[in-house]
């Protein structure tokens, strides 16, 4: 118990150094701190699909186990984890783009009834989904990290590898974009 308390008082960065040495207790603690937040981010980034989010969460932490040397000891863990998550989403979009293109070629000439289409759309789309769907991948990710994950401007600058001023102006335009299109009751 005493040992576990000692681990609990460690910072994310200290835990990450222990993980580099293969410490599974440190890994468990870091997982408990971030898994639920990263899953929520994946969920909204990846078409509000829970199983896709779970798969990506697994892959992210598996990557962390397989290649912990990718972590630079001078950088913060939280933005680093979300940077990996953001990059994984970019890859997922690219893959999905290829798949969609391929499927649309296969389905050329197939006509869906109006009922089938509305069931599909109603099943997956809630208000937040619609809002996020309006944004391209980078805007969506920045919007989520800022307003869902409460990331500071400095952390966002680290994730996107841009100056804080640029982050601020990007967020300004994203918010303007959202405000212009947000669905009003």
């Amino acid at each position: 118990m005493k040992l576990f308390r000692k681990y609990k008082s460690k910072t994310d960065e200290q835990l990450m150094i222990l993980i580099k040495d293969g410490d599974h207790r440190a890994f468990t603690l870091l997982y408990d701190r971030y898994a639920s937040r990263i899953k929520a981010f994946f969920y909204r980034m990846l078409w509000s699909d829970s199983s896709v989010a779970e798969d990506h969460l697994h892959d992210l932490f598996a990557k962390l186990i397989e290649r912990p040397e990718l972590y630079n000891e001078h950088s913060l863990v939280r933005p680093w984890l979300f940077q990996i998550a953001h990059n994984m989403c970019k890859n997922a979009y690219r893959k999905k783009g290829f798949e969609t293109q391929y499927l649309s070629q296969l389905e050329e000439g197939v006509v869906y009834s109006e009922a089938e289409r509305s069931i599909d759309e109603g099943f997956i789309k809630d208000e937040v989904y619609k809002l996020l769907d309006m944004l391209d991948e980078e805007r969506r990710s920045m919007f989520l990290l800022r307003y869902q994950q409460d990331m500071s401007l400095r952390e966002l600058a680290e994730i996107y590898d841009i100056p804080s001023g640029t982050v601020k102006s990007k967020l300004f335009y994203i918010r303007k974009f959202v405000v212009d299109r947000v669905e009003l009751d």
Binding site: F27, T28, Y31, A35, S36, R37, K39, A40, Y43, R44, S50, A53, E54, L57, H58, F61, A62, I65, E127, V128, L131, L144, Y147, Q148, Q149, D150, R175, V178, V179, D180, V182, E183, L184, D185
Partner: peptide
């Protein structure tokens, strides 16, 4: 616009966390 934006942001913040499955943790 303020109200719509506020609602969207708070809906997002409400789902800041999403419980992952225990199986994923055990596998890792």
């Amino acid at each position: 616009e303020y109200k719509g934006m506020f609602r969207a942001i708070h809906q997002l913040r409400a789902e800041k966390e999403m419980q992952p499955s225990g199986r994923t943790k055990a596998q890792l």
